[in-house]
């Protein structure tokens, strides 16, 4: 993806030099191996910091709400859908936003890769679809395709939906036989099995709210978990409180979630938070024919009334 990095730096430099934007939000390499972190640069000299590789899984749409001045931001397919969401939900004006689109080949699942190697990873590099990992034992190479994040495997919108600049040629979209195979699998389970599954899923949750903070959809001025009168959900690690938090957080994303996987990426306990949101993605697709963030001119289904809306749940 070096060509992407090069192109992104060029565009960013150009935008900052011509003062078309006040700042560029992108990724830079972190201080530990295998970590890319968001960065905001305001001077064209800093453009060399910007990178783009398979570690840039966080969603930069999180940093563009209510901007001061005009900002440019780097967007993968899913990020661009969240940016559409933000425009539709009046969190940012389209005029204040310059989107540098990046056609995405999927992001790498770091925890899965870490399981594969022994000892600590000391260096990481990638070339095309090959990953090069250095550990104390020596250098190892892996195929990127085998270590894609779960949401990237199911991604059907790899190319940015809206963009002002493109950092590369569009990639071919994946054709999936059954995009909701994972949800169907859970749906087919018995009620007891479902209950156990979700109990196991959330039992490690430490309530750090990293999933909420990483999610571009979570922008309420006061989150329901922080409200204290009335207190909707307890702050302990009690099973009910944990489940209530995850359930309600997911439900707030109904019809808005773009399955970018930032929540899973941010989770320090490797909880697959997407198990909740996937169901809502499937429901909004089946009930309203809706996929979030594809059209800047359409209101979301939970926002509008249509006589054809499903209502068979009403007695």
């Amino acid at each position: 993806m070096d060509t992407y990095t090069k192109k992104i730096r060029e565009i960013a430099k150009d935008l900052l030099a011509s003062q078309k934007v006040d700042r560029v939000i992108g990724f830079e390499m972190g201080t530990i191996p295998m970590a890319a972190r968001p960065v905001s640069i305001e001077s064209e000299n800093d453009a060399e910091k910007l990178v783009f590789n398979s570690l840039c899984a966080m969603n930069l749409a999180n940093y563009i709400r209510k901007p001061k001045g005009t900002i440019a931001v780097i967007a993968k397919g899913c990020d661009s859908r969240n940016m559409v969401n933000h425009v539709v939900e009046h969190q940012v004006d389209r005029e204040n936003l310059v989107i540098i689109g990046v056609p995405c080949h999927g992001m790498v699942d770091k925890s899965q890769l870490a399981l594969e190697v022994e000892g600590e990873i000391t260096a990481y590099d990638e070339e095309g679809q090959t990953l090069k990992i250095t550990t104390a034992q020596g250098e190892l190479t892996f195929e990127k395709q085998d270590f894609l994040k779960d949401n990237c495997r199911l991604c059907q919108h790899r190319n940015p939906v809206i963009h002002d600049y493109m950092a590369g040629d569009p990639v071919t979209e994946q054709e999936l036989e059954d995009p909701f195979a994972d949800v169907n699998e859970i749906e087919a389970m018995s009620q007891e099995a479902k209950s156990t599954l979700f109990e196991d899923l959330t039992k490690n949750c430490i309530r750090c709210y990293a999933c909420r903070n990483a999610c571009p959809l979570c922008f309420c001025p006061t989150c329901f978990v922080d409200e204290s009168s009335p207190q909707w959900v307890g702050k302990s690690q009690n099973k009910t409180d944990v489940d209530t938090f995850h359930f309600l957080r997911a439900f707030h994303c109904a019809g808005r979630c773009t399955d970018c996987g930032a929540c899973v990426e941010a989770c320090p306990m490797d909880i697959d938070v997407r198990k909740f949101t996937r169901k809502l993605i499937k429901d909004s697709y089946e009930m309203f024919g809706w996929e979030a963030g594809l059209d800047i001119s359409k209101r979301p289904p939970l926002d509008t009334f249509n006589p054809a809306d499903p209502d068979d749940f009403i007695m």
Binding site: Q191, T196, A254
Partner: peptide
């Protein structure tokens, strides 16, 4: 209701 059922 759908999501609650999904959760068991």
């Amino acid at each position: 209701g759908n999501l609650l059922e999904h959760m068991g």
